[in-house]
Design a protein around this nucleic acid. Structure first.
Lengths: 213, 213
DNA sequence: TGATGTTGGTGACTTTTGTCACACTCGATA
DNA sequence: TATCGAGTGTGACAAAAGTCACCAACATCA
């Protein structure tokens, strides 16, 4: 039954929420399913709900004028989409792309609820503020990287982050995928990866890269 | 007298605030003065107050490892520093540099007040949310520019923004200053400016640039 | 087994950007 | 007036990154 499933997710991922808050969320949240590759948000789309990820993994990226992509960060279970909160509060348009990279479940919380939750529930308020803070800092980090670093450093940072976020040393990434995420070309990635391998930072295999801290 | 000055600023710049909220701000806000060139925040510094700009102009930029600078946006009277709010709520460290570019006055609001204001005053809550939204979008815009655009487009966008933000067609900028803000070199800026002049977008003068929409 | 598609390697080249060196102009001021 | 420094122009070159062309390795599947 839907409601018990939602309750289980909320208990597991948001234990800090007050019982009354949990009850409201259980009452009003809609559990939604996405397959790997599905879009959760698209540039220009209108937001109607705040999104909490409860299972799977969502990739946030910015889209360029000519369809280029630029990876920003992942959202994992327990995370909320900061943009869906911000846009939600004013019914604005979404500015980024959000794609499920695996089977993903999210809770959709009607925007109409946001103001009330913020005012009535301290834990929700802190959760939202913390979400903003984290994403803001993440964006500042992204800016640092593209503004100040050359491609080799950006690549090293990217691999490190992938390894941390996906919690594995074996990165299932093709050179082309990396190139897309960094908005560069496959050849540049191949060449830089080779350098990194010679320096001992990684070992390359077909279809995956072994990351050694 | 200090209190009446603060009251005047608040009335003029935040007319939407409830009287009770204004009263609390007048009671608790500290008016602080900065000269052009003074730093309001520095990387690594701890935040103790939320900052509202009431006079002058503040330049927000990110600092690179080797002391490079990267311009993000200006804060004007009526704006709040989103970072001072976010960091404030958790007494975290500041991540950006904020420099007064002219004689500037700000209201410092003790962080201890934030939670209460957010809960009790709807107009403050909306003001804070709107601040987050605007700065978040501004950062996304910055990312777009450096991730997807070549230097000529970035320069064009930069000049446009300067003209809008500073509300003048005569931009008092040297080539070196522009180069610093865009994290490139003076020569590149000179060459691109010349191209823009030939294309009719600007007219160059000594020590200032005439921007023609 | 052979055909096909995806992935990765590489050389050659172009473009963009950064760097170095130096020259010129203007304004301030000693 | 002479000099000095800040701002700007520019040529030459270097470095980084993007593009193009093509080939090789491997997996899958008919």
């Amino acid at each position: 039954m839907k409601d018990t499933t939602v309750a289980v997710y909320i208990d597991r991922l948001f234990p800090q929420f007050e019982p009354a808050l949990k009850a409201i969320l259980i009452e009003n949240a809609l559990l939604k399913d996405f397959q790997g590759g599905d879009m959760l948000m698209q540039t220009g789309q209108n937001m109607r709900s705040t999104v909490l990820i409860v299972e799977g993994m969502v990739k946030l990226y910015r889209e360029g004028d000519d369809g280029q992509e630029f990876f920003m960060y992942y959202l994992q279970p327990g995370n909320a989409c900061a943009l869906s909160m911000i846009c939600a509060t004013r019914q604005e348009t979404s500015e980024v792309m959000a794609k499920a990279i695996e089977q993903t479940k999210v809770l959709m919380i009607p925007i109409a609820l946001m103001d009330k939750l913020m005012r009535d529930y301290k834990t929700w308020y802190y959760f939202v503020m913390e979400t903003y803070r984290m994403r803001f800092e993440e964006l500042l980090f992204v800016i640092d990287n593209i503004a100040f670093k050359a491609m080799d450093e950006r690549l090293a940072f990217y691999l490190k982050k992938q390894s941390e976020d996906l919690n594995t040393k074996n990165l299932q990434l093709t050179h082309s995928e990396i190139a897309v995420d960094l908005n560069t070309s496959r050849e540049v990635v191949s060449r830089l990866l080779k350098k990194m391998e010679q320096a001992g930072g990684i070992v390359m295999h077909r279809n995956y890269i072994e990351y050694r801290l």
